[in-house]
Write a protein that binds this DNA or RNA. Structure first.
Length: 260
DNA sequence: TAGAATGTTACAGG
DNA sequence: CCCTGTAACATTCT
């Protein structure tokens, strides 16, 4: 469910709450998508202390002081709740607890969210990383004729853009989501690059301001989004927001976005 | 109430 | 083998 801005905040919150805590155990409650066994997780993390939490693409990485990493991918509809809790816990995927009794539980009705033991970090630029440059983006777009909205969401080319922020970014730089990637002129590739950086940074800042229920991590918040937001009928400039099915998802955009 | 949902993967066809 | 488009996944929410 979450994209990069949300994951940034969740990662900061996890680190704040659990840094320095000693791992107790992980329980795998729905193993459909989980590759390593419960025993493998527990053996690897046994006796270690949480050192730091960061985000890598659409995963959160919990770094433990014995060198092992617990990755978490929330997929499309995952939820994360602090333990202990009185909330109803339907469709649990896994539970992570620390020696002091604190911890988290990850839920997902679709059974797709998952913990990953020592996740691979592919050599593909993350949208907030130094290696994601305008030149790199230009190279990616020049080699494909698929629609630009699909291209920027390809995690094997650029890591970190999902459906909602793809719409926000393309609206921000006034490029139609239906544009053929290789047809986008150089100056608009520059605008797109700047919008990827700006929209991601601004959304992270907006989310950081939210006052939230302390027990439930915010994985989804429409309010700060300008076009990918079913509650809005018009953009801030007053333009009607259009929507269209694109593949198996929906694109939100306005007429002033130019199709190349 | 049927369809959509901040995602990924397998597979078919060109 | 590379590129592209489509559907499945299984449940909740609107």
């Amino acid at each position: 469910m979450p994209e990069v801005p949300e994951l940034n905040i969740v990662g900061i919150t996890l680190q704040k709450k659990f840094k320095g805590q000693k791992f107790k155990r992980i329980e795998i409650l729905w193993k459909k998508r989980v590759k390593a066994s419960e025993e493998e997780f527990n053996e690897a993390l046994q006796g270690s202390t949480l050192k730091s939490v960061d985000r890598n693409g659409k995963e959160l990485h919990l770094h433990f002081d014995n060198g092992n990493v617990l990755g978490i991918h929330m997929m499309l509809t995952g939820k994360m709740i602090l333990l202990p809790t009185d909330l109803s816990l339907r469709n649990p995927i896994f539970e992570l607890t620390f020696d002091n009794g604190s911890g988290i539980i990850v839920l997902d009705g679709m059974g797709q969210a998952k913990p990953i033991l020592n996740p691979e970090v592919p050599p593909i630029p993350d949208i907030m990383g130094d290696d994601f440059t305008e030149e790199y983006l230009a190279k990616v777009l020049s080699k494909t004729s698929i629609k630009v909205k699909d291209a920027i969401q390809r995690q094997d080319w650029i890591r970190g853009i999902g459906n909602a922020y793809a719409d926000e970014i393309l609206w921000h730089c006034k490029i139609s989501p239906f544009s053929a990637s290789k047809n986008i002129p150089q100056d608009k590739v520059k605008d797109l690059y700047n919008s990827i950086r700006t929209v991601t940074r601004d959304a992270t800042e907006e989310l950081a301001k939210l006052k939230t229920n302390d027990d439930v991590f915010v994985m989804e918040n429409n309010d700060h989004r300008f076009v990918h937001n079913p509650k809005r009928k018009t953009s801030p400039e007053g333009e009607p927001i259009q929507s269209a099915k694109m593949g198996n998802t929906k694109a939100y955009y306005t007429e002033s976005q130019v199709q190349y």
